[in-house]
Nucleic acid binder design. Structure first.
Lengths: 354, 354
DNA sequence: CTGAAAGCGCTTACAG
DNA sequence: CTGAAAGCGCTTACAG
């Protein structure tokens, strides 16, 4: 292994000077710079990040804590990770993925080892024990998501209000008046304080009321299967529904499949608009889903930048909320027969057949 | 931060003794052990992995190099990563995911920094420049996949021969005699040396010949879209096909969707059997796909264990090939009218309509 | 602008 | 079984 000492000797300078040049921490004259750079090139020198970490008390590694047991690591998660990794690399940091539990014990164990300078928390719950762990250990962190009390916590999150406003507004303009929300199971302890479900639902209730729409919220868990089951219940309980908003991306896939199997055409009979989905996932079906596109790339980057600022002693970025934006596909259209009874009659007939 | 020195002082021993106990590198009497453990508990000591790494020349971090630009990071990749991470953790290692290019330059840069003890290579190509980089830098590594020349390289891989044998055998027993393989695009430079396509195809050619079946190989790229397009071509060029084997998991999803849109029922008209898919992906469709289940959990674990053995100076595990196993779903059944012309006639009629 | 030296928190021969 | 001490490859006041 070629060390800084080797470079210094070859260039005829001290190792301190090499370090100053490498880190740009003190000015170096052009001639010594040239000598050092030549020496580095000739020797193929690469700085040892472990030694640097020990001496500087900064590993330049940050962790993304992802509760993989409670949340599938799908395309959306991959987007968050990838954009965060890119943002980190641009600032000379490594990002590592930590699949740790929701309760904070594993996180505490890992953080105590001194491997990382800070943590980006994914899938934040309204009351998240991991936040306490990070505060107690004085570990810099940034939330992608929000706890209920946010006093001074660095965070970025989806703007659920605008996302739902835009989604409902789009459907309304197309003529839809029967718009149902499929949210999560809020009696499940893991998800009763899960921001996306809670915030989507409250935004939907507010927005639907503003539009004078009937408010119908149904639930599903985060599986394809449960999305399909939700549709079976929906067409039974609310046969006049013309559009479905759905929070969970796996359930959304199941919803489309389920409607098809029940004999409903998407979007002719019912439009389906997932509120949070990655384009790669939307492309798995054919025709491709119309979605509100999760702002994963933006949030991954912002969260990481906010964290790195803190690690380096600066103030975190101000909190930012980014809405999911409409990403057109082929699962949303105007209702077949807006505000008439014809559609409902036709669907009822089909149902009787099946 | 509480250091080993703090623990040593409190326990009334030297830091060397604490280290011996912690690493189990030298015997320690029961009484000193008790004193040290008490001190560690009281102080909440946690060993600093960075200092340990610098002193021992072993970071206990291994990287999984995944060429994210050329290969989507889907459910199969997530399975490999998760199982590798678990295997690493069990042996006191961290696994980090490195999304690096296929050409080795990024890998060389990263490896030179001394962050990792070794590398697990994913999506290995038959002629892989990353292998050269790792050899030149004397970095321990294990392949998940195979290069063409394997002289002494630690590797684990899918057993394509047995996978295809089992898949074709299963279909044959159900009565299928027209079994087509959808492989990859071998004229694409990235995939012309991609093991799964190359080896699946050659296994298929051998096995189909053994069964006396007509050999039909078509290609698709790794997208849902292309899987759908392949089906359009298939029913045009080979209307008597009763079963489809398909290598790429995204294309497989598209194949089912495409057949449905073309008016073919799966599995009644055509059975679809992906050769390499993760169950989570198979569960995205409804009904769930019948698949040959990628042995991701087994290979992730074996590859990691093989690597860690080398890192610790032992011989790597002997190469192992693991077949994908049949994982039942609802997209494979017997052909509608085996060996008669009735099925083909009916399909031709449907085709004329569309 | 450059250098000598202490120190980051451990591991590991070496000695006893 | 335990300890004193060197050393891992850097960074960083401090001095000049």
């Amino acid at each position: 292994m070629v060390t800084m000492r080797d470079v210094a000797e070859r260039a005829g300078v001290s190792i301190a000077t090499v370090s100053f040049l490498l880190n740009d921490t003190k000015p170096v004259t052009a001639t010594t710079r040239a000598r050092i750079e030549a020496a580095m090139a000739e020797l193929g020198y690469r700085r040892n990040v472990v030694a640097r970490a020990l001496a500087s008390r900064r590993t330049h590694i940050i962790a993304m804590a992802y509760p993989a047991l409670d949340h599938k690591f799908g395309f959306s998660a991959a987007e968050f990770f990838t954009s965060a990794a890119d943002a980190a690399r641009k600032q000379d940091y490594h990002l590592v993925l930590w699949p740790v539990g929701n309760d904070g014990t594993e996180l505490k164990e890992l953080v105590g080892q001194g491997l990382v300078d800070g943590v980006v928390l994914m899938e934040v719950q309204l009351d998240d024990p991991r936040v306490t762990v990070l505060q107690e250990t004085s570990t810099p962190f940034a939330l992608i998501g929000r706890t209920s009390s946010l006093e001074g916590l660095a965070h970025v999150d989806i703007d659920f209000d605008r996302t739902v406003e835009d989604a409902v507004g789009h459907l309304y303009e197309l003529g839809h008046r029967r718009i149902v929300l499929i949210s999560g199971n809020l009696t499940d302890p893991v998800f009763s304080t899960y921001g996306p479900y809670v915030r989507s639902e409250s935004a939907y209730r507010r927005v639907a009321a503003e539009y004078g729409l009937e408010i119908v919220v149904m639930e599903s868990s985060g599986s394809t299967q449960s999305g399909q089951e939700a549709m079976a219940q929906l067409v039974e309980a609310h046969p006049d529904t013309t559009a479905v908003l759905i929070v969970n991306e796996f359930a959304a896939l199941g919803a489309v499949a389920g409607l098809n199997r029940l004999g409903y055409k998407v979007p002719e009979d019912i439009s389906v608009l997932p509120l949070l989905m990655a384009p790669e996932m939307a492309a798995l079906t054919n025709p491709q889903l119309t979605i509100m596109r999760t702002p994963g790339p933006e949030l991954g980057q912002l969260g990481t930048e906010s964290l790195i600022r803190q690690v380096e002693g600066a103030d975190p970025l101000p909190p930012q909320l980014v809405p999911a934006k409409l990403y057109p596909g082929a699962t949303v259209a105007g209702p077949r027969a807006p505000r008439s009874k014809a559609g409902a009659g036709r669907r009822a007939a089909r149902k009787a057949r099946s």
